[in-house]
Design a protein around this nucleic acid. Sequence first.
DNA 1: GTCTATATACACCAAAACGGGTATATAAAA
DNA 2: TTTTATATACCCGTTTTGGTGTATATAGAC
Lengths: 217, 217
Amino acid sequence: MENYILPINLLIADDHQLFIDGLTKILENEKIIGEIFAVNNGKEVSETISLQSIDCIIMDINMPVMNGLETTKQVKLSNPEIKIIVVSMQCDVSIVSKMLKAGADGFINKDTGKDELLTAINKVMGNEKYISPAISRNLFSFFSEKKNISSENEKQLTARELEIIKLIADGLTNQEIAAKLFLSTMTVDTHRKNMIAKLQLKNTASLVKYAFEHKLL
Amino acid sequence: MENYILPINLLIADDHQLFIDGLTKILENEKIIGEIFAVNNGKEVSETISLQSIDCIIMDINMPVMNGLETTKQVKLSNPEIKIIVVSMQCDVSIVSKMLKAGADGFINKDTGKDELLTAINKVMGNEKYISPAISRNLFSFFSEKKNISSENEKQLTARELEIIKLIADGLTNQEIAAKLFLSTMTVDTHRKNMIAKLQLKNTASLVKYAFEHKLL
DNA sequence: GTCTATATACACCAAAACGGGTATATAAAA
DNA sequence: TTTTATATACCCGTTTTGGTGTATATAGAC
């Protein structure tokens, strides 16, 4: 069954020390687990994998310095053989799909227990993907709902538009934004109108609300 | 030193099973710790403390069914002798102060490690309060900043104003809101202007942002 | 009984946003 | 090479908003 080399050297990347301590305690007596390393942010992940022989990373999404998404992308670029299991509290479908696109091999919820974690480690080390049943249920209902196709081809704003919506939310007028970005007032106004149009909103107020709901700020 | 009865019976309330498993592993071999119980939401806390002899609760803030704040209030009302240590990721000063007002005895960050957790347990069982140094630093800088006095006497919006800001965020104009609430357009406009003035904002866009940041929507 | 907060309504003028266009340059994609 | 996406800029007329006030009725607090 297990065609991978034992024991597995683990790296835990999480900014919550208590979580690391707990996870280490849970896993340290498991036969299949070898050494366990731990870091508190994404930047330290790169450093650790260049120094140690890591087989699998247990990764949190929300970390300071460099978040789980960026870190996953980088690791998979430099060391695609290293398996990555994402452990998260947020299980919005959009996050899950982003992480999987970035190259994650597994995705489990912090709600799940020890046994599922070990299952996940086994699966990904055997080159399979593993997603918590709770999450895959969500994924299923997500893809079966026609409405949410719109969140898939997520009408996204361009870099310039993002820059401008942030300033709008801060209460700046077109004029003030134009001055700040060395643009014509009319250009800023055009960007604003384009955003309102493409997102099918009514006015600036609802645009700010949209930005918040989609975490663009 | 320890004038409380040993061992200490603990109850862990957290919706993340992995966190519970980890914490249990960390604490189960500590001499001062007796039995360790665990529940996944606030409602189960009340049930457990009525059935078991619990000395100290380690409580998460974000839980389904009943959150940590409500649960803390209820426990302190029915069983004030039970010590409560809040373990949270969010350490906004406003949350910390709310929890302390609700009767929490300790407040530590999930960033902190095992040793600090044990220190906290010892302190609260000795009838002292314990707050993570990292958090108390925040508290200090918070109270030393004059500006933030405003968040204390939190300029709050009236019921009517809240009703109106919600509709504004939905993209309705003064006219539309007036029609909806059977008011004069001018009244709605006055409310909007009052909000912008009392919160020291610039315009409607920044008002919507404010509403989001203060979870008014 | 006075003070204060709240909800309501109005006036006037200036500034900003909105709706619905057009248009050009550039770079990337098909 | 043609199409598409993006960033830029402009026009015009209408609607909304912002700034600065005033004013009345009502309910609680002091």
